[in-house]
């Protein structure tokens, strides 16, 4: 998994340390620590993982192992408007793949990538449980239901000038 180089500021370092401390710097709390850290920074680059490893007194390899194991954790920053396409079974049988292809085409990025201007990122998720609205697309926290490939343009238009 590739990662971008970041330089952590003093305050960032302190924030990570503070999060680790709130979980008593316990190794067993690693996943909770990572959740909180990602919530704050938006993603978990290698530099952040190094600090977490140091604070919890464990190897960076172990932290990296956990970060890459779980799909919720990401080492790449998300776009300003993260787009997630549900590819759960219910959405799949109602044509989620066509919707995904259309997003890829319109944005010119693949799943897991962020557009060059940092505006959009594209990801897939497995079932948000709104199967009655399948196929479902999330942009940030906003849910769009019964999306068709033709509807993709309309959704993107909403964010064009934002």
């Amino acid at each position: 998994m590739s990662s971008i180089k970041v330089k952590l500021k003093e305050q960032d370092l302190n924030k990570i340390k503070e999060i680790c401390k709130s979980f008593n710097n316990e190794e067993g709390e690693l996943i909770n620590v990572l959740h909180k850290t990602q919530e704050h920074f938006g993603y978990l680059p290698a530099e952040i993982q190094e600090v977490v490893a140091q604070e919890l007194n464990m190897s960076v390899a172990k932290v990296y192992g956990v970060v890459t194991f779980y799909s919720f954790f990401t080492m790449l920053p998300k776009g300003k408007f993260p787009i997630s396409i549900c590819t759960g079974t219910a959405c799949y049988v109602r044509g989620a793949d066509n919707v995904l292809q259309e997003f890829k085409r319109q944005l010119g990025i693949e799943v897991g990538e962020t557009s060059e201007d940092g505006k959009y990122s594209l990801s897939c998720l497995r079932c948000v449980g709104a199967c009655g609205l399948a196929p479902v697309v999330l942009v940030g926290d906003k849910t769009y239901g019964r999306v068709s490939a033709e509807g993709v343009k309309e959704i993107l238009a909403e964010y064009q000038d934002k």
């Binding site: 590819t87 759960g88 079974t89 497995r126 079932c127 449980g129 199967c131």
Partner: peptide, 12 residues
Amino acid sequence: DEGDPGAFMDRS
């Protein structure tokens, strides 16, 4: 940890 795509009973 309802991971089965298309199942949402536990969440409900």
